[in-house]
Write a protein that binds this DNA or RNA. Structure first.
Lengths: 342, 342
DNA sequence: TCCCTCGGCTAAAACGATTTAGTCATATCT
DNA sequence: AGATATGACTAAATCGTTTTAGCCGAGGGA
């Protein structure tokens, strides 16, 4: 059983392919096709189980009604959730999304953009890697709209972005720690050079200074990027166990690091919050269910997805016309969710 | 800046489009294109930044090198992880995957198949919904290979499937409970009518009977499908708290139910395993990190992904030729991971 | 000398849609 | 009567590839 095409229908209904096309695209009235021909064609199409070939359509129109979503890792809870909102949101605008993971690998990211470009997606939502800016500029030059999520390029404000207010979020967390009387605050972060992590770190320094505490680099643990789980866990365990006595609170700068922290705390049976208060950037089911429950700075995932989609759709509508100059660089407020760990 | 096409290259290099096409597809030697023309075309293509248009290619060849993956919900850890393995696995065979979530909604599942079919994917990996069999048969009739994962249709053995041995997994769990001396075993399951859940339930009954325990329906909690999180949680809480004294172990038949169970156990401060031993089908980060750690029956997610992909690729290679009669209906062994909860 | 083969390339059809520019009656206006 | 409008459609170009069939000249064999 072969697929049925528009000309199969035309033959069976005894009309031309153009007529069928008009009917299938609701342009029949505009093209003054008679009522009877319309219903005839509709019936034949239904009987034969016609499904328009989107490749042919896309080739002709230059629009695929598809957007490409590139995230770091789709199996990570944060990105999986983000992907789901974006998928749902896209459907509202009648777009389909195809997603893929970079694993934070520059070459892979380039390949993915390449692949999506070959598949003629209409626009992109991208969690960029460090060196991806020029590749993204190329897309823009080809008139393909791009919106960044989660990360951004401060030196490229012309690339729209939607992300949490990283600085504000960490600042909020730090203030909370100070308000509870903690002053010796350790930090566990990742050796990523992207601006969003830099912003988080800066907030840590700034709020310490604001409260007259001199930052102590020995209280900062840098976990190298790209470690396998076990190696990263090792690093965190080592840090928390050896420096344990030197601080009274620890702030994990990412979801993933927080999970490693929990594994460590569990293993060394550290009393939270008595021995060590714990705060983490970005929520996770585990933090809600662990004993004690872990306080977090929560990202507005759904809002990020919605706003990013909205920004993209706007640009999608404006392609062809001169680009709208409203550079969207949104930073959405993070929420402090106080639980038992602090 | 417009996209460059094969004919742009042809013009610039002073050759025909056919020649360019042959060069780009490594058919140049077979087509006896001279060394110098080959390098010339290659250079021009590189300079102009040529990227083949996959829509056109797909339209012409009938192959898109894309497979459609339909899961229940991509933001669920199990499916997110499965999706990632399948994506990685597909790349090995030079296929791209586009995935989407049914949310276990029949109409949505149909729509998704429809959409993927319109986009001319070469094959499908599907987590089916209850009534999807006929729609899937249609795909097969169109000569599009399909492999089911996670769920299957016992009455349609001609649709290949790859899944965990649900019966065997639950049986293994039950035997473990008995071996530890538990005999009053409660069950929390979901009101889903699909065979995989039926298999799990059957194993529960069979192993109880095998050990001479008469199943007591009051010890089985059916959580209605499609509940929002809060309502489902309410159900589980109600069951566990009111019947608490009537059993000494509880077996959650899905990952998600297990998480609800943990929330309940935490809220009512139930002592595990003293008051109640806990076992869950399907692992989750939370089970590994909760205190006490929760014993699970673990699905071989990666193996499922790999075997499913393999089965699909085999069929993809054989389309056109008469279909190979080797009906794949794989059931992969589940692993018991004993932890502290039992 | 004529026929073949072969090396090196090209023309053109095809894939399945969309869309512009018609065609051909019939009806209306002047 | 002739020009114009309108209603109901259709022909054909087009999108960017792949692929089959063939062109043309040179060299080899009979």
């Amino acid at each position: 059983m072969k697929k049925v095409s528009i000309s199969d229908i035309a033959r069976k209904a005894g009309v031309s392919v153009s007529t069928v096309s008009f009917v299938m695209n609701d342009k029949a009235v505009k093209m003054r096709i008679s009522r009877e021909v319309i219903t005839k064609v509709e019936n034949v199409a239904r009987e034969m189980g016609y499904r328009p070939n989107q490749l042919a359509r896309g080739l002709r129109t230059g629009k695929t009604k598809t957007i490409g979503l590139i995230v770091e890792n789709i199996s990570n809870a944060f990105f999986a959730c983000l992907a789901k909102t974006i998928e749902d949101e896209a459907k509202k605008y009648d777009y389909k999304v195809v997603y893929c993971s970079t694993d934070n690998d520059e070459a892979k990211a380039r390949d993915l953009i390449n692949m999506l470009s070959q598949r003629q997606v209409d626009g992109y939502i991208i969690t960029p890697t460090l060196l991806l800016a020029d590749e993204i500029r190329k897309l823009q030059a080809e008139n393909k709209p791009v919106v960044l999520i989660d990360r951004y390029f401060p030196e490229h404000a012309e690339i729209p972005s939607v992300l949490v207010d990283n600085y504000g979020g960490v600042a909020k967390g730090m203030e909370y720690l100070f308000s509870k009387g903690y002053r010796k605050i350790a930090l566990v972060t990742i050796e990523a050079e992207m601006a969003h992590m830099h912003d988080r770190l800066q907030a840590y320094y700034d709020i310490l200074n604001k409260h007259g505490v001199t930052p102590d680099d020995r209280l900062i643990k840098w976990v190298p990027y790209g470690y396998v789980h076990e190696a990263a866990l090792e690093e965190v365990m080592d840090f928390l166990s050896t420096r344990r006595k030197e601080f009274d609170a620890v702030f994990f700068l990412t979801n993933y690091l927080g999970v490693l922290g929990i594994e460590t705390i569990k293993k060394f049976n550290i009393k939270v919050p008595e021995e060590m208060a714990v705060l983490c950037f970005d929520d996770n089911d585990i933090f809600r269910l662990y004993t004690p429950t872990i306080s977090v700075i929560k990202q507005p995932i759904e809002e990020i997805g919605q706003k990013a989609m909205l920004a993209l759709i706007e640009r999608l509508r404006h392609t062809g016309t001169e680009l709208p100059p409203d550079n969207t660089n949104l930073k959405l407020a993070a929420e402090l969710v106080p639980r038992e760990s602090i």
